[in-house]
């Protein structure tokens, strides 16, 4: 690490700025369907692999369906909100409904090794880059 100590707020702030700079960047080209549709997606690179992260608060595993076909990943599901009877509603800001969107990645993905995790309202899809798609260092003779 470059510094003796790092301020966690500084780290967060820098990361927030990095996220802002890549707002709807060209990396996915035309590969994202329904931009502005639910759930909002962030795409990261971790080593050679791609991680797609979405915020889906209130959506459980059982209400989500993830499909992969080639380089296309489909995220579909339903967000439900349960209201108890006999209560009066003071404020209603949360939204519910169906969602369905597809992302096509500009890299080759090893479809067999895709993993998805949904915890604390965050959906993370791990997409390992296909071995044959990884850049290879070329030895110079």
């Amino acid at each position: 690490m470059a510094f003796a100590f790092t301020d966690p707020f500084e780290t967060l702030f820098n990361f927030q700025q990095a996220l802002d700079q890549l707002r709807a960047s060209a990396w996915l080209e035309a590969g994202v369907s329904g931009q502005g549709a639910f759930p909002p997606l962030n795409v990261f690179r971790k080593d050679h692999d791609i991680v797609v992260i979405a915020e889906v608060p209130g959506v459980g595993k059982e209400d989500l369906s993830i499909e992969a076909k080639g380089n296309a990943i489909r995220i579909a599901g339903t967000k439900r909100i349960a209201f108890r009877d006999g209560t009066s509603v003071h404020r209603r800001e949360r939204r519910n409904g169906r969602f369905d969107r597809t992302v096509t990645l500009p890299i080759e993905v090893d479809a067999e090794k895709i993993k998805a995790e949904c915890r604390d309202g965050i959906l993370a899809i791990f997409l390992p880059r296909a071995e044959r798609d990884k850049p290879r260092a070329i030895a110079i003779n």
């Binding site: 709807a24 997606l41 991680v51």
Partner: peptide
């Protein structure tokens, strides 16, 4: 935020 360690953003639609 440490959960995002080692992650390099490529395309974003929301901030955290």
């Amino acid at each position: 935020v440490s959960k995002y360690d080692g992650m390099e953003p490529l395309y974003t639609e929301y901030n955290i």
